[in-house]
Amino acid sequence: MPHTVKLKQPLLIRVRKIKGQSEALEKALLHDADCSAILQQIAAIRGAVNGLMSEVLEGHIREHLGVDNIAPEQRKNDLEQVVSVVKRYLK
């Protein structure tokens, strides 16, 4: 069972919080909120997304690269996949 299925509820809670923060940012922009409040909301969203990414990435690494019974070629493919995702995320 994939780690995202095992952790479905906590991950969905995180996603829903991010959705709420995003909606709050949209409302702040629509209502001409103070710039510092908008910046604070953007920082909160970024932190929430980073936390979500960290949790899913850790689970992926532990499940796909941290196991002993994986073929070297599969480990190499999984590693390249993780490196590719991290590079895109950090752009």
Rank of each mutant, 00 (worst) to 15 (best):
M53A: 10
V56I: 15
E80S: 11
D34Y: 06
D32S: 15
V49K: 10
E23W: 04
V15K: 04
N50A: 12
N50E: 15
M53T: 08
E63W: 04
R16Y: 01
V86A: 10
V67S: 14
Q74W: 03
K76L: 13
G59F: 01
I42H: 00
L52V: 04
N77V: 00
I42W: 05
A48I: 01
S36P: 00
G51S: 05
G47E: 09
K76G: 05
E26T: 12
V67Q: 15
A48T: 01
A71M: 05
G59V: 04
G47I: 02
K27Y: 09
S84K: 13
A28G: 04
R62V: 09
V67E: 15
C35I: 12
V86L: 09
H60I: 03
V67P: 04
G66S: 03
Q21T: 10
G20I: 02
V15F: 09
E26K: 13
V83D: 13
R88W: 10
Q40P: 00
H31R: 12
D68G: 11
I45A: 05
M53N: 10
A37V: 01
L79Y: 08
C35W: 04
H60A: 02
I18C: 00
V49Q: 11
N77P: 00
R75G: 00
N69R: 14
I70M: 01
E73D: 12
